[in-house]
Design a protein around this nucleic acid. Structure first.
Lengths: 190, 190, 190, 190
DNA sequence: AATGAATGAGCCTTCATTCAT
DNA sequence: CATGAATGAAGGCTCATTCAT
């Protein structure tokens, strides 16, 4: 158990440290050296767990995806209706950005510094965002039961765009009034 | 004159090459070495024109700001009304992204890879985006003459959020249907 | 064991090469590039052993301190009395400078090219010289048992000053007659 | 007159700035760029006055030689006897080092960072020091009229060694008590 | 599973100097 | 006499990765 815990914890410790640094400093601006130093691991240890920096990056985004989804669902699941859940997503956005010191979204940030679309990181990024999109779709369908699929798609997509747009504005301007505007618009759509 | 032209063109050549590379590869992933090589300049030549990479980065963003604004205005100015101009901004977005191979916005990309808000690049970035915001405000005021300032601000901000959100989605998914959704929403707002 | 020996010897090889070059060319005029080239090491190897050039400089001075003290003590310890030992120090000075091609003292040279007194190298330098001062003090106390502490301090300090002054003159003029004069003066003091 | 003054002042301004920087930072650690920048001159202007950095270094040492000698003579000339003049040289040393923030002697410092004895700077350095030696010789001869030339040489050389040794100790330890000891020894010799 | 020395290309920047104007 | 753009080698240092132990 101790052994298992240790072996798990070594790899996980690296991921944990990397997550913090990749998010705070950016993926490309964070070096393996800093990661292993702060994780208390050796060079060789790192490369026995990950065959490259990119593989660590992917592990980071996969873990981030799980964690972030968990945060979000924990936040909105207590809400009763699909409508209040959708509004809750935007409340979550404000909470999240405030706590994160307006650093923005790890996935969007990494997308912005990774032009190559064939890059494996980009796959994780679009997977993550697609799942968020699906959530908007599902909640919209649940809420707007009488509307046509096309109308539903229009609304879900708009919500998704508003979410991403507000996120970027918060990151850029550190100004929560963007969130208030977005929420008003969201309410108007529901 | 030849000398002046040459000496100017040398500095401008560096900016031009840097603009291309910074945009295509990202600011941090582009080295001075590559820039001067592709510009056919020597190390020392570079540093006689720019005191640091950051100064070049700022020169890049300032030039980009002018050029991009010029593109946009040239695109929307022929339109007759404030309303068609606002819709035109979103048409421009589609044109731009298609031509740019969906690389996204130089300013947002650089923001995403530059966490430090005190960074001089960030100043240029928010300046650029604030000006775009002002354009939305001005056109909204021109169009919605009967609405209250608060209502105008709500609409202009929503348009701005939609613009940025759509931009990010195009960059992420390379899927112009996001633009169609956004345009529908924009029309509904006007 | 072979591994350990090799890995140690790599670091030591760098120190050894650096010691030679720092002494012969000066600390600031010697680049890391030249050091690693002559030591047959890679850039990264160097920086895995030393976190900066300054750290290597300190390692150099620390090693030099040990080696030089060893040379000196081996030279004067065979002498019987404190008096002959003190004269021996000046004989050693002549031998040393002759063998060193009158390059002077690594510590004084580095002090002269390092104006910042807070610099870590300066700490090593004054440590080294203070220890030499202590040797003069100890031998003076042993020799002049009847004199007052104040008188002893006066003599020890004078000997120290004469040593340093002669050293500098030898370095400047390559003329051993300065040493003869100094020795005469030393004898007069004892 | 204005023209002459300006043309003189440009070259002299460079020398003046260089003097300050070479002394404070060391010869090798000071770059031409910093010098011309602080002197408000252009690259080409510099190289029209000096064919190389070394030539500026020589101009610096020549000017320094004149200035320093002037300082010293102005300090000791008011003294009546050769004896008080010689003691005055050591008083001057204390004044000088205190004012110079214990940066030491420009000539010795440059010697220490210039191993190559054939270097033109070294020529200026030994010229300067030889002249100081001559001063000690002349004053000793004036004072010790009854002593043999050999005895005079012994004393003058000892004074010279004490001067240089004390200078180095002040630079190293910033401790004026070395000067007191030296002065006591000097008095004993006269 | 873990270590850490070794690699060499690359990072941004400064160096002393030349030369056309 | 003065300018300042251009040069390219070198400065100290970090990068992601490999490999023998």
């Amino acid at each position: 158990m101790t052994a298992k815990e240790n072996s798990l914890s070594k790899r996980d410790e690296i991921i944990e440290v990397a997550s913090k640094l990749f998010y705070e400093q950016g993926y490309h601006c964070t070096g393996i050296q800093q990661i292993i130093q702060e994780a208390g691991a050796a060079k060789g240890t790192f490369y026995s767990h990950f065959k490259s920096k990119e593989e660590l990056g992917i592990a980071w985004l996969k873990a981030r995806h799980e964690k972030w989804n968990h945060w979000l669902l924990q936040f909105i699941n207590p809400k009763q209706s699909a409508k209040t859940k959708m509004i809750g997503i935007f409340d979550f956005l404000g909470d999240w950005m405030t706590k994160a010191d307006f650093r923005g979204c790890a996935f969007l940030n990494t997308m912005c510094e990774t032009p190559d679309c064939e890059n494996a990181l980009r796959t994780e990024i679009s997977k993550h965002k697609r799942e968020l999109f699906e959530l908007f779709r599902a909640l919209t369908a649940e809420h707007h039961t009488t509307k046509s699929p096309a109308e539903q798609e229009q609304i879900a997509t708009t919500l998704f765009i508003l979410f991403e747009g507000t996120l970027i504005q918060l990151q850029n301007f550190h100004d929560l009034s963007f969130l208030q505007v977005a929420k008003k618009q969201v309410s108007a759509l529901l």
